[in-house]
Design a protein around this nucleic acid. Sequence first.
DNA 1: CGTTTTTTGCAACTATGTTGCAATGTGGTA
DNA 2: TACCACATTGCAACATAGTTGCAAAAAACG
Lengths: 139, 139
Amino acid sequence: MHAQVIDTLKKNQLSITDSRKTILQLFMESDGALAHMDIENNTGEEFDRVTIYRTLQTFVEKGIIHTIPSADNAIRYALCKDACSEGHHHDNHIHFMCDNCSTTYCLDHVVVPSLQLPVGFRPSRTDMVVSGCCNRCSK
Amino acid sequence: MHAQVIDTLKKNQLSITDSRKTILQLFMESDGALAHMDIENNTGEEFDRVTIYRTLQTFVEKGIIHTIPSADNAIRYALCKDACSEGHHHDNHIHFMCDNCSTTYCLDHVVVPSLQLPVGFRPSRTDMVVSGCCNRCSK
DNA sequence: CGTTTTTTGCAACTATGTTGCAATGTGGTA
DNA sequence: TACCACATTGCAACATAGTTGCAAAAAACG
Ligand SMILES: [Mn+2]
Ligand SMILES: [Mn+2]
Ligand SMILES: [Zn+2]
Ligand SMILES: [Zn+2]
């Protein structure tokens, strides 16, 4: 068990519970993003579905993980690496979903380009998701 | 009834049915994107849920409409304005979802910027969705 | 028309996500 | 360490999203 798990929970003033420890650990061990189902599969019968949903919600609110939208109706989640805090995310990197292995990557070094929007449109958040063939699958 | 409705269906070699006519008409009259539920609400009990899903699927395959991903688990659809064809979409514009009125706009004149991806990542499609306050709501 | 082919409606099912409430667990304090 | 207040969990029930198989109905086509 990563010491960082407990650390992160404490830093965010969250009580230390089994589900939070296990789920946060899962994120830290995984290089891709995780959907609810991935977590359920990896924790077995250990936690109720509702608990997983609520844990994810809490982590998002605290700025520990961020969401990645998709066109397949399964929201994915990944660890925030920037200085995200309660109610304020700064994950302005792009995401890549592999059509082949369906791994979802945070491309932390590829920044979302800024845009010139038509008059009257005031942006608050930009999601950029590229799909295609990932580096492992294109070998 | 727009003559263009029948026209578009014929051009795509689709048989002319009530559901296709009604749903395509709906898209032509609407300026924003539509989710499945919007269509169900606007057509009453006229069509079965499954028929609506299948009609949307057919329209996407034919290049008549395109999907817009979101983080709220409701895929939205909008008319393709570029020269999209069967199995080949060219809608490289960005989308804007209003946090206030939740209208989803195709910003046809705002082109998705190109990106430098890490080595090995081969893109096939890019979705860029900006959320914030739309021009009508920011007045 | 009548025949062939496509589309539709229905039933049943899976996946995703939310809410209320009682039971349990955690953190802080005596 | 034992107790208490409060936060978190599990369960049941519900809501929305989407899929599949199959028989009935409707289009297309001659
Ligand atoms: Mn990310
Ligand atoms: Mn569009
Ligand atoms: Zn891959
Ligand atoms: Zn608006």
